[in-house]
Design a protein around this nucleic acid. Structure first.
Length: 337
DNA sequence: AACGTTCACAACCGCGTGCGG
DNA sequence: GCCGCACGCGGTTGTGAACGT
């Protein structure tokens, strides 16, 4: 409704904060808590509006803020959550411990957005710019959209709950907040909870953006994306796993190795549109493995056939689980004031 | 060394929403 | 139910630093 007139007062300071201003604000909040932001500047002896004080505190002075470079893990989390939530920076921040919404927003606008664009990915849709969706992808996208709507509601309820919880003195009950479901919150508010989540659909192709992201990271750090193991044991790097499953007996393993090597050393990464690369890679692998299974066992319903199935399914499941786990994890330790 | 351009980030602005009177 | 205050959020701007010419 009405807009706060607090910043319209004449004589209030604007622009960068001085160390003295910071010190006054810190000292006041440490002693009294922030209370009403509107009343705070006068009480703290600051020539600032309450809004400015709140922003300075939440984005800069608060002691539980982590500053500095974002890790790969944090970047991935931001990308995943942005794909799901869009520009809902506060909701994203609630799932990134010790980072503020403003910092995440700035980092997205100055770094991640540009990098995704460079990779040929639309930063708003998280889809390849030239990628035309087929019917199955449209269905997947619809499923994702349905889940995103429900997750939006859930995240909002959780964020509200966290905010409310921080207003109260910590109680043993509070330690349970992490697992307190948003559904019960909605019920408490007299709202019918949405129907239970359908089993997660396979992710649409656009979600391979993270795999591509990991690929670019791996490239930049000379870290292999895929590893193979001819000795029966499996190795796992960045969630993608390839096992021998008898390839040692066949020259197909060397073909598999070649594909993986080519992929690792960046042959595929030379492709401008990174999203094109993974499906191609998987397709190559699929052809090879399917061919191999027929050669060894005569049909696809066998160990090697399911090897590819496992590989693809694992990849999809890992990816999807990452996404769901991310939004399921408790934000209670997050910097929501 | 001087100037112009680009980048990064802190801070501001204005809108939407919740809540109490 | 209406109104207005207070707050939070997301988009945008301003400014200093870094870099290039």
């Amino acid at each position: 409704m009405g807009r706060s007139p607090c910043c319209e007062k004449v004589g209030l300071k604007k622009g960068p904060w001085t160390p003295e201003d910071d010190q006054k604000l810190l000292a006041y909040i440490e002693e009294h808590g922030h209370g009403s932001w509107r009343a705070l500047p006068v009480k703290a002896g600051l020539q600032r509006c309450g809004k400015s004080c709140r922003l300075r505190w939440t984005n800069y002075l608060r002691p539980d803020i982590k500053r500095g470079k974002f890790s790969l893990q944090e970047e991935q989390t931001i990308i995943q959550l942005h794909a799901l939530l869009g520009n809902r920076w506060s909701a994203i921040a609630a799932h990134l411990s010790k980072r503020t919404d403003n910092e995440i927003k700035n980092y997205w606008n100055t770094h991640l957005k540009k990098r995704l664009t460079k990779m040929g990915i639309d930063p708003m849709t998280h889809k390849p710019k030239s990628h035309a969706l087929g019917p199955s992808q449209l269905k997947d996208a619809a499923n994702l959209s349905h889940m995103a709507q429900w997750e939006n509601a859930r995240l909002e309820a959780e964020a509200r709950l966290v905010r409310e919880s921080k207003l109260h003195v910590s109680t043993p009950f509070q330690t349970q907040l992490g697992s307190f479901s948003a559904s019960s919150q909605l019920v408490n508010k007299g709202l019918a909870p949405p129907p239970p989540l359908p089993p997660p659909p396979p992710p649409p192709l656009c979600l391979d953006v993270l795999t591509a992201w990991q690929g670019s990271f791996a490239k930049s750090t000379s870290m292999p994306i895929l590893q193979y193991n001819n000795g029966g044991a499996c190795e796992e790097t960045m969630g993608i796993r390839v096992e021998d499953h008898g390839f040692g007996k066949s020259n197909k393993f060397s073909e598999l190795k070649e594909i993986i090597d080519a992929y690792n050393i960046g042959e595929a990464l030379k492709v401008e549109n990174a999203n094109v690369l993974l499906p191609n890679f998987v397709e190559d692998l699929s052809d090879l493995l399917f061919e191999n299974s027929n050669e060894l066992y005569g049909n696809s319903n066998n160990v090697v056939g399911s090897c590819y199935g496992d590989f693809e399914e694992n990849k999809i499941n890992n990816h999807w689980n990452n996404m769901v786990n991310l939004v399921n994890c408790s934000p209670s330790g997050s910097p929501v004031f």
